[in-house]
Each structure stands twice: as C-alpha cells, then as structure tokens.
Design a protein around this nucleic acid. Structure first.
Lengths: 288, 288
DNA sequence: TTCTTAGGGTGAGTTTTTCTCAACCAATTT
DNA sequence: AAATTGGTTGAGAAAAACTCACCCTAAGAA
C-alpha cells in the first residue's frame, strides 16, 4: 500500500530527561547543571513537554518551581526508567577494549588531593586508563558516565559512599606571617584569602573561634582554591585551610597554622563509585 | 571556582533507541519502520553508538545484520529501560484533559472495517476523542503512542490480543461478472485485482482451490486495498476478498462471491490495546 | 520603601543533530 | 544475467537543541 507513514512520534527523549532531572532535583537550574546545559534549555524542554501533554507539569513560583500533583505522580516512573537506562549505558561503556575509569572531582580536590594519589592508582592498575574531570557539583553516578566521584559532601547515612576524611578548617599562612598571629583578633589587619565556592568558610570558622569578624577586613577572592593556596604560600594573606587539601603544605613547612582552633564544616571528603568499581575503590582506600 | 564545565555527555538517547529497536527487531530496516525514519538514519545512529563505545555492536552480513555477542548481551537492559520509558510516556499522555484513544490500523482495515464501527465507539464513549492512524506494520504498543491496534496478525498464543475474526479469502466480483464464473478456471480470462501488500493472496487461494494459475493472466496492482475494491465494484476484474473487509459489499449486493472455495491465510484480524484500555476494548468486542 | 538576590521566562540567532535523498554495494534468488 | 534484499554513503536540508542577553517576579535585606 505504501501510504505515507506519518508515524506520530512520542515526546522527545531529551525533554523527558530534562523533566526527570528537574523533578528529581527540584529546580530547573539544578537540572541544567546536571545535564550540562543552561537553564534556558531546561525551560524550553519542559515547555515542549507540557505542550505535548497538554497539561502543566510544574507550577511556576517566584523562587523556583514546584511539581504539580500530576508531575509528582509521574516522576518515579521516569526516574526508574532513566536509572535503568543509565545502568545499561554503563554496561555499554564496559565493552570498550581498554578498561577506563573516569573520575569526577571538585577542581580543588582534583588538583590538591587526587593528583598526588593518582600515580599509585595507575601503578596498581596498569591496564586501566584513568581520566579526571573537574566538576562543581557531584555527578549522579547512576546517570552520568563517571565511575568514581570525590567531593566534599554531607555524609548522609543513606548512601554507600566511603568517607575519606571529615572536613576540618582552620587558618593557615606563610611561615613568616605566623609570629604576628597569636589570637583570632590578630587576623584583622591581614588579607583573608577566599575561594568563591567556599566563601562561607571564614564565617564557619569565625563562629567556632568566637571571632566577630570586623566588617573592614580585607579579602581577596579567587575562583579556584588552588589559586588562593598559591597566594597564601606567597605570603599574600591568610587562607582558610581544609586539612585534607593542605596537609602536604603543612608537612613541608610551606604553610603553618598559627591558631589551634579547628572547625568542622559538617562535610566529609567522600569517595563514591558505581557498583562495578566498588572493589577497586575499597582496595584503594585501605592504603590511605 | 566556576571552571568551564565540559561535562562529558553520555551517548545520545536517540542512538540508544535505534540500537534497541534494531537489536529487538533484528534489522535496521525494521527498526527504521518502527521509528518512522529511513534506514539510513538507523545506520548512522548505530555508527555513532559504535564509535562512542569503540566496539562493533552488529556484524554486517550481506543479507542483513546480526548482533555481536556483546550487542546481544546488552540488548535486554536497553529493552527493559525503554519499556519502562514507554510505560511512563503512556502515563504522561493520560494527563491530557480530554481522554484520547489513538488507534493504529492497516489502511484497509481503517477504511473498510474501522470506519463503520467508529461511530458506535464514539457514541459509547462521548467524552473520548478518537483518532486513527494508518500504518503498514503493527506498532509496538509498549513504545509508541498508540492505545489500540487493529491488524491482520498471526494469532500467537503469547500475546494478549483479541482475535476479532480469522482471515478468510475468496474471489469476489461485480454481480454482472459472476454468471460467467463457474469454476476457478473461468477466472483465467479476467483481470485479477491485486493489492501490493497482499500480493500473495491469489497464490494462497489458488493453491487451496487447486487452480494452477496460468502465467498469462492479467493483473492490476493497487497500492491500497480500498482502491482495488472500488475497481472490483466497477466490474474491472476479480478481487481476492477478505471476508472481514468486504462483508458490507456482499450484504449490499455490490459484490458477489462466484466460487464457494474459501482459504484461510493463517492470520486473524486482531485487536490489541495497552493495559489501560483493555476494559474499553473488551466492552467494544462484546458488541461485535 | 528600595535594593538585591534567586529562579525562571523569552526570543533571536547559532550550532548540532538528525534526517532524507539518491546513488551504490554485495550477496542471494530467480 | 537480472532482480531482490538489506545495508551504506555523503551531501544537503530540516529540525532540534542550545546559548546569550535581557526581562520578570517575589522575597528578603537594608
């Protein structure tokens, strides 16, 4: 018969993925981040889907979006579907000839923590090819193509991540600045080095140390922790140090901690992996 | 930190869908048909995926493709993932305000069988909006956006489809031609009307009737069964009639069956639905 | 109040992806 | 040898997806 076949198509898969991410993460911006696109792209995907369905999936409110009742009802089905898809994609990736391990980490963690440990990992698994991607937010290992992730995260009981070290912060500086700093108040005349993504660190520590930070204190902001760290080594000011990241500098005497007070951020440096790589991660951690 | 976020993307979802369809249906052309695209598009999707994976998923052979071992191992995971996705999409469709029933049928079935029954269906379900799409091949109801399908299919035991009527075929013609046809051999001087998609019908019937169709018999081919039927009504030749489709013409006397021999094609007119519409279909069938 | 911030929405324009089309093969089958 | 089946190819076209720059709203801060 060979009639023209205008097979009606289902909704675009990418729009479904955007919906699932936005619904799960509770916001378009977060979905955008997970999917590596701009929020505008998510807006458009959701609109496409709502038009296709003929019903709103999200309620737009000024401070964000809320799932409608129907949207909420639908979410679990899509979440499990995409979880299955993610698992299948991971299996697909396994086919590749040389085994590959793709690690996602915070830029600072990648540079200051991971880089010194990667050689050992390579030595232990010479047949593996390791690659590292710096990310602002921890990836969803079920969905994305990463095998390991190393991030500062709240060590919730729900997850099977490995706590590498609880996050402790305290001021550090170049050795020659240390003698002038006996109490928290001695920090005031110095420049405080601040990392953009960890801008609350000083507040956390100040509260713990009982230091009412005066408003006039000079600060210098950096977009990468490693940059701030470099400045601290050069004596440009006081950095709030994360114990796990600056240990080599303390041990080598490049930095010193002039004040004894440490504060816990409530986060921990956590290693997570997909199930396939659990064993490799476990053996890695036992050496730590 | 705001580092440029080149989040590595997974394989394109559409390529995965093409892979799943091709693997399940055992061929690129069939996958192309199910997805409503050309075979070339499937070729390209599969290539994209094979490049992404770095390993072949299909073995190319002259008469088609075969899944590689790895491809075969991967298929079930993708099939279940897309089944779940399909179910979720069906649920999504339910949100639409007015309930809609989308029926897929063979063009001939849509025109000759369904059209006379649709008014009753609309009357029974006045709140529903019915739409019909003509398709050459039965759709996969788990994946595509159809709710009902009516096709001639082999009534396998595996499926939950409803057998509406077993397919019986026999020659029919305009009343004025009938008197000249007493035995199968009297068909020889006439033009045989043939539908392109059912070109074997005459062979099936001839074999059953013990008629060795001479090679010189004139035939006229039509791309739609309804066209061939119209010609038969006009006395242009002999059509091989499908009982379920030409019954109204026989009852109205527009066509007659000059010969008593009927042949079974082994197919049946089958109604399938998604689970949500099972009840509606059952009640429809009890009226038949 | 007026500012500021957080989160979205928009539409134009661009980039990427996907698709079609029209050959072209290579192994069967007739 | 010719037709058939099923896949492949590359160019060009169409559709989808994305970015960018800017707008909007509500809520909290000053």
């Amino acid at each position: 018969m060979a009639v023209s076949p205008p097979r009606p198509k289902g909704p675009p898969l990418n729009a479904l993925r955007a919906f699932e991410a936005a619904a799960r993460l509770g916001g378009f911006s977060r979905a955008a981040e997970e999917l590596g696109v701009t929020p505008g792209a998510i807006t458009q995907h959701i609109k496409t889907l709502e038009d296709w369905v003929g019903a709103p999936l999200f309620e737009r409110r000024s401070q964000g979006v809320r799932l409608t009742l129907e949207g909420a009802r639908l979410r679990p089905a899509f979440t499990t579907a995409f979880d299955k898809m993610g698992a299948a994609v991971h299996a697909l990736k396994e086919l590749s000839r040389t085994p590959r391990v793709h690690i996602a980490a915070l830029p600072s963690v990648a540079q200051l923590w991971l880089s010194s440990r990667l050689p050992r990992l390579r030595a232990e698994h010479p047949q593996c090819q390791f690659s590292v991607t710096a990310l602002e937010q921890p990836p969803n290992l079920l969905r994305e193509v990463f095998d390991w992730s190393v991030f500062f995260e709240r060590p919730e009981s729900d997850s099977k991540g490995i706590v590498l070290e609880h996050d402790e912060i305290f001021p550090v500086c170049a050795p020659h600045l240390a003698p002038s700093i006996k109490t928290a108040h001695d920090l005031t005349p110095h420049t405080l080095l601040v990392d953009d993504t960890w801008s609350e660190d000083w507040d956390i520590w100040a509260k713990e140390a009982g230091w009412a930070r005066p408003t006039g204190v000079k600060t210098a902001r950096f977009s990468l922790y490693a940059l701030a760290l470099e400045e601290a080594r050069n004596g440009a000011g006081i950095l709030i140090g994360h114990a796990s990241l600056i240990r080599p500098d303390l041990e080598a005497g490049r930095l010193v901690a002039p004040l004894p007070m440490q504060a816990a951020t409530g986060l921990a440096l956590m290693l997570r992996t997909t199930p396939q790589f659990q064993a490799m991660a476990d053996s890695f951690v036992t050496f730590e």
